[in-house]
């Protein structure tokens, strides 16, 4: 059983390393499909409940600070840029530039999570916890506001887990880059992780207006 990595050889059941690359990337696209369908459950729940309780969603979004949401949007978009750039630099054989961009991407992910932490803390401070733990019953207008925050925490929480996973994966490819395992013709893992990171961005692109800008 030959290995994939350092020697730039390919596993025994593939004809060539290009063949292996194509199969790997195809697998990543299929994986992204499963991610989208998993998130689709939350989006469907969102859409159904927004249809039934538009006023609850309107009240809920007033508790969210759109400036922090917009800041996070910009952070993630920028991280998508640096991710794309790092792949570009690997392909033109500039591993150092690629490395810098990967590290910036991780830093952006970290920044995103810090902003998220600040936001969550503010919610908790007002008793706006998910589900049973919701304690802000006195000063709210609509009885089912907890439902909005359940959705908010489920959607951003699952997304946050994906951000953390993405950061871990980028860290993993950064280590492999450091070891010199990638080159202009050998970067399947970076490209796959990049696709995953862009998907995380893609989901946030929808979450931002749905949660922070609904009226």
């Amino acid at each position: 059983m030959s290995t994939v990595s350092s020697g730039h050889t390919h596993a025994h059941h593939f004809e060539s390393s290009q063949h292996e690359h194509k199969a790997g990337i195809h697998g990543v696209w299929l994986f992204l499909v499963t991610e989208i369908l998993m998130f689709s459950g939350l989006f469907v729940a969102y859409a159904i409940f927004k249809g039934v309780y538009p006023e609850v969603f309107h009240e809920g979004h007033r508790y969210l600070d759109w400036r922090l949401g917009a800041l996070n949007t910009v952070i993630l978009l920028f991280s998508s840029l640096t991710m794309a750039l790092s792949i570009h630099y690997i392909r033109v054989n500039k591993p150092k530039a690629a490395m810098i961009n990967l590290l910036i991407t991780i830093a952006c992910g970290l920044g995103f999570m810090i902003v998220k932490y600040i936001e969550y803390n503010a919610k908790f401070h007002h008793g706006l916890y998910p589900g049973h733990f919701f304690t802000a019953h006195e000063h709210i207008e609509h009885k089912n506001l907890a439902l909005f925050f359940s959705l908010y925490f489920c959607m951003t929480g699952l997304h946050g887990i994906h951000v953390l996973t993405g950061m871990g994966l980028i860290g993993w490819v950064a280590i492999r880059l450091k070891k010199g395992e990638f080159g202009p013709h050998h970067y399947t893992a970076v490209e796959g992780v990049g696709l995953f990171w862009h998907l995380v961005d893609l989901i946030w692109i929808y979450l931002f207006p749905l949660l922070y800008l609904v009226s």
Binding site: A84, H198, L199, L202, I205, F208, P209, L213
Partner: peptide, 18 residues
């Protein structure tokens, strides 16, 4: 409008970044 803009952004990410 928000959804249309989000979809436009998503398409841009998909076409050029991905």
């Amino acid at each position: 409008i928000a959804m249309l803009i989000a979809t436009a952004k998503a398409l841009v990410v998909m076409i050029w970044f991905m």
